[in-house]
Design a protein around this nucleic acid. Structure first.
Lengths: 200, 200
DNA sequence: ATGCTAGTTGACCGTTCGGTAAAATGCAAG
DNA sequence: CTTGCATTTTACCGAACGGTCAACTAGCAT
């Protein structure tokens, strides 16, 4: 079970940076197996299909974020709106450090995969949608807290949260098109100007 | 020359909806040729490579937009900020009509391609970047006009324009993840709340 | 010791990939 | 009538694709 788990996680570890830095279709099982030092038959012992692998990769990225930057950013000890600043900062520094190591702005793997596969695979789309949904909830809770504390005027927390998430993804997209994480630095802070008023 | 042009444009016409509705890697030359009623050798007479085809497709989409919705939206006769409303409306109705016909929200092909290929092909990335750059200029000019007219308080028109473009792409991304153009309808109008202040 | 099972191996499946080369066709100008 | 050029056809390339299969190994419980 120990060694078995090891093989499985070696496969995921090999797949993660590849799916992130290239695309779903452009990364083959064979390449992943070679990099992980695993035979193809062994791969299909752990993963019924390529799709199942990418789902595991998505889960790992989501966990990594949820327990890393996101947990730090949405620290209840911070004043609510500062958490959003923190998140933008984290996104910026993460993209920047990846570019320093890898030479490229890789962007958000959830956004990348969404635009690539969501018209072709509803199961993957649902998976990615769930990730976005959780992210939105984080924003929403933060906004509600900020409103309750009187930090910001009342607004439609649900829609504003969704708008902020959209903006973050859009900023990362534009940054990727320029291969330049500084775009995140320049545009990110404007996320706090976004507002959807409460319905009258 | 007439028939020749016809073959070339039949190829592009076959490729356009495919690249838009699926992805770059998922659409093969063979399929495009079959759909266009063209032999593969003939394809390579007109396009040196698959990349050259997708560049032509990008150009066609860009022209289509520039001469269609975008031209209507950025009509100088409209009050500046209403142009932005118009553009959001246009994006919404376009995505909605595509979904009605095709059954799917396909999103923005420029955004789609950017996230798929921009880490793997700098020439395509540059092409897409140029498209975004032109779009940003439209926003920027509009914002400057709105500031000059006193419609909105002074702001950093360049950065705010980029932020608005990012937001639009992000909203479409999120809508695609939900396969629901109504997201564009709900979130789109908040684009006008985005602001980057002028540097002090 | 035996049998079961999780894991592994390596060969193999048919299909598709982007791209090539040479021969054939059509057409227009000299 | 012929030359030349653009276009088209057809057959083909090697490589890679996702996925399958039967045989084999190792460890553990009965």
């Amino acid at each position: 079970m120990n060694i078995a788990t090891d093989t499985r996680s070696r496969i995921i570890a090999a797949a993660k940076p590849r799916f992130h830095s290239r695309s779903y279709a452009n990364v083959g099982i064979q390449e992943i197996c070679e990099s992980a030092g695993v035979q193809k038959g062994s791969f299909y012992h752990f993963f019924p299909s390529k799709r199942d692998l990418v789902m595991a990769v998505i889960d790992e990225f989501a966990d990594e974020w949820a327990n890393g930057f996101v947990a730090e950013a949405f620290d209840p000890a911070l004043p609510p709106m500062e958490r959003i600043d923190y998140l933008i900062d984290a996104a910026y520094f993460w993209q920047k450090s990846i570019k320093q190591v890898h030479g490229r702005m890789l962007g958000c793997i959830f956004g990348n995969l969404t635009l690539e596969v969501s018209t072709q695979d509803d199961i993957l789309r649902a998976k990615l949608l769930a990730i976005f949904s959780r992210a939105k909830t984080r924003f929403k809770d933060t906004l509600e807290e900020a409103v309750a504390a009187g930090t910001i005027p009342p607004l439609d927390a649900d829609l504003t949260a969704e708008a902020m998430l959209a903006y973050l993804e859009g900023v990362i997209l534009l940054a990727k098109s320029q291969n330049d994480p500084e775009v995140v630095y320049r545009l990110g802070p404007a996320i706090k100007t976004l507002r959807v008023e409460t319905a009258a």
